[in-house]
Structures are given as C-alpha cells and as structure tokens.
Design a protein around this nucleic acid. Structure first.
Length: 594
DNA sequence: TAGAAGTGTCATGCG
DNA sequence: CCCGCATGACACTTC
C-alpha cells in the first residue's frame, strides 16, 4: 500500500498487475478496484472509515444476535450442551454470520473438478447459502439502487456493488452460459453421487412443515445496507419471494439446518457459485421452465438444504431404513451393521446413533470413556447437539413414546442432580456433600449410559426394584444384549454399592460396639480389681485375727505337770467334726512321711 | 508429597 | 445350580 501512496504517473503493466493483486487481496475488505486509482484516493479514507464503522456495527450486531441466540438456548442437563429451544431460531444469527462469512471469505471457490468430498459439499452449501438467506425485501434505497442506472451517484453503492461483484460479466452472460450450466449439473451429480447424500431425500411435506422463520421479521433494517452487495441476486430474490412456499421452505430449512459456526468456518468465494446458481434460475425462467415449488423441493439443492438435518439422523426414524447405515457410518465411524440392533425385532430401540455407538463398548470401556474428558458420549453430544432430543422423541410408536416419557419422568424424578461426571468437580469439604456428589456422579454416569442405550426405565428402578418386579419389567420390554448387559451391570453395581455401604456401615457399627464393650469390660475389670483388693484386705485381717486367737488358745493349754506346751513341739489341729486336738509336731512329721 | 479416609467396584464365599 | 448378600481387596479421589 505504500507504493500506492505515490502518484501513479504512468502505470505500467507491472503496476497494474500489482494493483490487481492488491485489489484481489482487499476485495474481501470491501475495496473496489477503482479505489487504487489516484483519483479515488480521497474517497478511500472516507470509505475505509465508513466501512470500519459499518464493520464494527456489524460485529456488534452479530454479538447481540449471538447473545440473543444464547438466551434462546437451553442447557441440556444430560449432555451439558446448549440446544435450541426452537429449531428455527438459528436463522437470525445465521443470516448475519453467513453474511460475515461471505464478507470475510478470502479463499476462492475451488473448481468442481473430480469427486467432491463431504467437506467440499459443505463448502458448496456454504457458498450457496448467501443466495438463499438473503431474501429480505429490498429497502426503498436498495431498490432504487438496483434499478438506478447511474450507481455512481451513490458512493456507498459504488463501493459495495463494485467491490462485491467483481465479475459482473458473469451475471450478465450467465443466461447463455451453457458451460456453466454443465458445470453446475456436474457439481450436483457429483454431489449426489456421494453415498452420504444419497439418503438425504426429504419429502416436500417435511420441508413445508418446517417451522417458518422469516428473516424479514427479524433482520434489523439497518442491515440492509450491509447486505447490499448481494444486488445481483435481488432479481432471484424477488423471484423466490414471489413464490412464498419456496421462499419459506427453502430459506428456513436451509438456515435452520445450517449451524452458524459451520457457516462461519466455511470459506470460499461465494459469488462464483451464487452467480452460477443465479444463472441456472434465470436460464430456466428464460426457457419457460421456472421451477415450481415441488420442482424446487425435489431439486438437488433442496436435498442439500436438508442435509444438515439429516446429518443429525432425523431421517433414521424408520423412514429411510435403507440408507441408515451409510449415514451413521459416515458420521459416527461406528458400524451399525456390526450391531445386532439392525436385526432386532424390537421397536428400534437400538436404532439411534447413540445406542449403536454405545453398543460396541463394554461396560469397562464405557467407564473409561466416561471418566475421560471428552468422552465418546460427550463427543457424540457435541457432534450431534440435537441428536439426544431427537432420539428421545421415539416417533415410531405411541407406546414407545409413553415408555420414553415414563423414562424421562423417572429419570427426572430420580434423586440425582446433574453434576459433571468428571472426577475433578469441586465440592465442599464436608463428607456428606462429597459422598452425595460422588453418588450423584455415579448415578449420572449410569443414567447417561442407560439413556444412551435407550433403556426404558430409570436407573433407580433398575437397582431398587425387587427381583420379581425387576424381572417383570425386563420381560415386558424387548431388550437387546447390550441393554440387558448394561441393566445387569447397573443393577449389580448398584446392589453391590449399597451392600458395600451397608457392609461398611455395619463394620463401623461393629467397631463402635466393640469399643463400647471394651470400655465396659475395662470398667468391669477395675471394679473386680477393687473388689479383689477389698477381699484381700479382709482376708489379711481375718488371718491376723486368727493368728492372735491361736496364740491365745495355745498359751492357755497346760500339760499334766501344769507346764505350758512349747509352740515348737506342739500345734493345734482341728478335725472335721469341730474337735480341736493338740498334736505333737514330730508325730505330725511322721504322719507326713507315712 | 505421603498418608488417611471415603467410595466404587470386583472377586469370592456363603446361605 | 442360581441368586442375593456380605466382605476382603484393590483402585481412585480428596483432603
């Protein structure tokens, strides 16, 4: 840009090439080619300033819209993700973001040569998207600008129009451009040749039943000026708007189906393909074959429009069973064919991606996956943010809906709080809270597993029901092997967990009881010791008294001569009948020796 | 950072 | 033989 500050005295071919390169680089910023001309240098600063203000305003608007979108989202307590309360609420934000994506896209559209990958198809959709979403009624200024043959009078129009339609010849010549038509047809053929897309046929009824969410009602009027660079498509828009059914279904389904983030991430020059599509429409109109609503709905673009919805496997609800494996395989990477659910006669319990995804995991593997951050379940939830709710719908049978309603009620009524299953949660240091939180985490994991396999009764029932009731419920439902194994595991673990808790409780109670017994026995011992001391004391006293009495009695004894007996030679002995005899100690010793 | 405490789970024995 | 329960042992987390 520094070189451009110099006056372009005589631009050479090299300078022109450089200008062309710079212009192509700045095209996404809204710079027109003529701004590189010195005569437009004065306007450049003002236009850049104005564009900066517009860009800031646009970003602010986008932030507000995203904020409003987040306000319209509700937190899925099971998956921890934000899911829209109404599916069509993406549109408003999608419009702005898509437009931004177009503004910010710097990569040219890849030519549609060779086989298209799924990402290329998505990019193609994203490139096609601005044409679809920009269907707001042109404002008076906008219409005047469109029909004004002297757009130079409006500098804004000059900038936006010429900046964002760098190849107006494409638009002008598209009506007779057969090569472009062939390219488009080839693109669509290749697009439809992709196995993932072959099942993406949506009937027109389902499309017309899409909740219509008109952008006209939601788009702020000041954004019209920002989107004025879609002028070449205004005619197409008017044609589309003239057909309200097509307009509504086409735009609403596309905008509702396309995630905003994906559109923001998709890059590519949308103008080329937009012009080609426009050419297609214009050409058909010229040839008298302007597509009707039904035609448009059966067009490849309508199938593409419905693709994101189908990528969420809404079409797996039994309407297109033949294509379900491809769709599931394409996204989850887990083969449904390996699952016995495919042949299960049950009410398509295992038909969901969730169930199949979980089926091939053993319980221990699921445990590992659960405990790991970014587990499979969580990733599935991220990959299919609406999948979980769709799975719970169970449109196959009313009884199944009742079951799942019962399941939902049971799960919601179960004494669990949806806490993160990750082990690193922050809890209060109180043991009771920690205990309950771990219990809840365990309960949540089992609940998630049960929900993943669509087990139609709650974990609480699995664990706490009596054996007879449990077997009765098990016999009432047609469950596959995975479901039975999971139910048995959950019940076994739950029972054993309660048993372990009871066991530990009993162990603690036994310890406390034994401590009490020990204290009691210690008291008893002390008491007995005191009693023993008392007895010993009394015994010594009696012994002392007895000795004194013995001496007194022995001293009063006299022999035949009146002499006292010597205590060393005689002693007193008492017989059993109570008589007392004076026995000589020699005799006593002799009797002992005898 | 080592250790204690709490908890879940598995394996095993017993009734 | 099967099932439920009790319990030791182990792993893991938290403090």
């Amino acid at each position: 840009m520094l070189e451009l500050e110099l006056p372009p005295a005589q631009p050479t071919q090299q300078d022109m090439d450089l200008i062309d390169i710079l212009w192509r680089q700045d095209i996404d910023l809204g710079a027109g080619r003529e701004v590189f001309d010195y005569s437009h240098r004065q306007k450049e600063y003002e236009l850049a300033k104005q564009k900066k203000l517009e860009k800031e305003r646009l970003e602010e608007l986008q932030r507000e819209q995203e904020k409003a979108l987040l306000a319209q989202l509700q937190l899925d307590e099971e998956t921890g993700e934000f899911v829209p309360i109404l599916p069509a609420q993406h549109i408003e934000t999608g419009t702005t973001c898509i437009s931004n994506a177009c503004l910010q896209s710097k990569e040219p559209l890849q030519p549609a040569g060779g086989a298209l990958s799924f990402d290329e198809c998505m990019q193609l959709l994203a490139d096609t998207f601005p044409f679809v979403v920009h269907n707001e009624p042109p404002s008076a200024t906008f219409q005047q600008l469109v029909h004004d043959s002297c757009p130079e009078s409006d500098p804004v129009f000059i900038t936006t129009n010429q900046t964002l339609t760098p190849e107006p010849s494409v638009l002008q010549n598209t009506g007779a451009d057969v090569d472009n038509m062939n390219d488009i047809d080839q693109v669509w053929e290749e697009l439809l040749s992709i196995p993932e897309l072959q099942c993406l046929h949506i009937e027109s009824d389902s499309l017309t039943q899409v909740d219509i969410f008109s952008i006209q009602d939601t788009k702020p009027p000041e954004t019209a000026e920002n989107y004025s660079f879609y002028n070449p498509m205004s005619l197409v828009e008017k044609e589309i708007n003239s057909n309200p059914v097509f307009h509504n279904t086409f735009t609403s389904s596309f905008t509702s189906a396309m995630p905003v983030e994906d559109l923001n991430h998709l890059k590519g020059d949308p103008l080329h393909l937009v012009d080609e599509l426009y050419t297609t429409f214009i050409d058909r109109k010229v040839n008298g074959s302007m597509p009707t609503t039904s035609d448009l709905l059966t067009e490849p673009i309508s199938e593409l429009v419905a693709m994101p919805d189908l990528s969420l496997c809404k079409a797996f609800n039994g309407e297109k069973p033949a294509c379900a494996p491809e769709c599931t395989d394409s996204d989850s990477g887990i083969s449904v064919n390996a699952s016995p659910n495919a042949a299960s006669p049950g009410p398509s319990l295992g038909s969901s991606l969730y169930g199949d995804a979980s089926y091939n995991y053993s319980d221990s593997e699921m445990e590992d996956l659960d405990s790991a951050p970014g587990s499979v379940l969580q990733n599935h939830s991220e990959m299919h943010p609406l999948q979980f709710q769709e799975d719970l719908a169970y449109p196959s049978s009313p009884s199944h809906e009742l079951k799942m309603q019962q399941f939902d009620v049971e799960v919601k009524n179960s004494p669990k709080k949806e806490v993160p299953a990750s082990p690193g949660y922050n809890r209060s240091p109180f043991a009771k809270d920690k205990y309950s939180s771990r219990l809840e985490a365990r309960f949540t994991r089992d609940t998630q597993r049960a929900k993943a396999l669509q087990i139609p009764f709650s974990v609480d029932n699995m664990i706490n029901l009596p054996v007879d009731d449990f077997n009765e419920i098990m016999s009432k439902h047609q469950l596959n092997e995975a479901q039975l194994a999971l139910i048995r595991d959950i019940r076994r673990r739950g029972k054993n967990k309660v048993a372990a808790q009871n066991c530990r409780k009993r162990k603690l109670e036994n310890i406390v009881e034994l401590e009490h017994d020990l204290d009691h026995l210690k008291d008893e011992k002390d008491k007995l010791l005191a009693e023993k001391g008392e007895y010993n004391k009394n015994f010594q006293l009696l012994k002392k008294q007895l000795g004194a009495l013995y001496l007194e009695v022995f001293s009063q004894l006299r022999d035949e001569d009146g002499n006292p007996y010597s205590p060393t030679e005689y002693s007193l002995q008492q017989t059993r009948d109570g008589n007392v005899f004076l026995v000589p100690k020699t005799l006593k010793t002799e009797n002992k020796t005898d």
